[in-house]
Computed example of a mutant assay.
Amino acid sequence: MASRPEQGGGPGAPAEAIPVSVCYADVGRIWQRELSLPAGSTVADAIEASGFRREFPEVDPTRSGTGVYGRRRPLEHVLHPHDRVEIYRPLVFDPKESRRRRAAHKAAAGQRAQVARRG
């Protein structure tokens, strides 16, 4: 009678591996690594395994933020097969302040146009 192999490869075998990618969009370039990690790995595990910290020592993912497919996720988030871990850049401008400036600029342009029509 032939024996069936155990699920997962038997004692001492690595856990089932899941494919994931880690990416970071820097100014002018996109950095990406494809990885195979043990099931149950976290965002932090993927970042560590990718070599990101060696490539970008000036970027701290704990401060700039991380996500999976455009949704913010903490470093403790457990990954699923084919997840794309994203490391975000710190914001250069406050989006609310930028919106206020655009609105003020648009209002000022509208006032200048009204004055020009009257003149």
Rank of each mutant, 00 (worst) to 15 (best):
G9L: 02
G9P: 08
G10Q: 05
P11W: 00
P11V: 09
G12P: 09
A13W: 05
P14D: 11
E16K: 14
E16R: 14
E16G: 10
E16T: 15
I18R: 11
I18P: 07
V20K: 08
V20C: 07
V20Q: 04
S21R: 13
S21G: 10
V22W: 02
V22I: 01
C23H: 09
Y24G: 02
Y24P: 04
A25Q: 09
D26G: 13
G28K: 05
I30A: 05
I30Q: 10
I30H: 03
W31H: 01
W31I: 01
Q32L: 13
Q32F: 04
Q32N: 12
E34L: 07
L35A: 03
L35C: 03
L35K: 04
S36Q: 14
S36N: 10
S36Y: 02
L37W: 04
L37K: 03
P38S: 13
A39Y: 01
G40F: 06
S41I: 05
S41Y: 10
T42M: 05
D45R: 10
A46T: 08
I47V: 15
I47W: 06
E48A: 15
E48H: 15
E48Y: 11
E48I: 12
A49T: 06
A49W: 05
A49R: 14
S50Y: 02
S50N: 03
S50F: 04
R53V: 02
R54W: 00
E55S: 12
E55N: 08
F56L: 04
P57N: 10
P57T: 06
P57K: 12
E58R: 15
E58A: 15
V59F: 14
D60S: 14
D60F: 10
D60W: 09
T62N: 08
R63K: 13
R63I: 09
S64H: 11
G65I: 02
G65R: 03
G65E: 03
G67R: 06
G67S: 06
G67P: 09
G67K: 06
Y69L: 08
Y69D: 06
G70Y: 01
G70A: 01
R72L: 14
R72G: 06
R73W: 02
R73T: 12
R73Q: 15
R73N: 09
P74T: 02
L75N: 03
L75Q: 10
L75T: 04
E76R: 07
H77C: 11
V78F: 00
V78Y: 00
V78R: 09
L79N: 02
L79G: 02
P81A: 15
H82M: 10
H82S: 12
H82R: 15
D83N: 13
R84H: 12
R84K: 15
V85G: 05
V85Y: 06
V85M: 07
I87R: 11
I87W: 09
Y88R: 08
Y88G: 05
R89K: 08
P90G: 13
L91R: 12
V92S: 11
F93C: 09
F93L: 10
D94L: 03
P95D: 07
K96W: 11
S98T: 13
S98C: 08
R99F: 11
R99H: 12
R100W: 06
R100D: 09
R100Y: 03
R102Q: 09
A103W: 04
A103C: 00
A103H: 06
A104Y: 00
H105R: 12
H105V: 01
K106P: 00
K106I: 07
A107M: 14
A108E: 13
G110C: 02
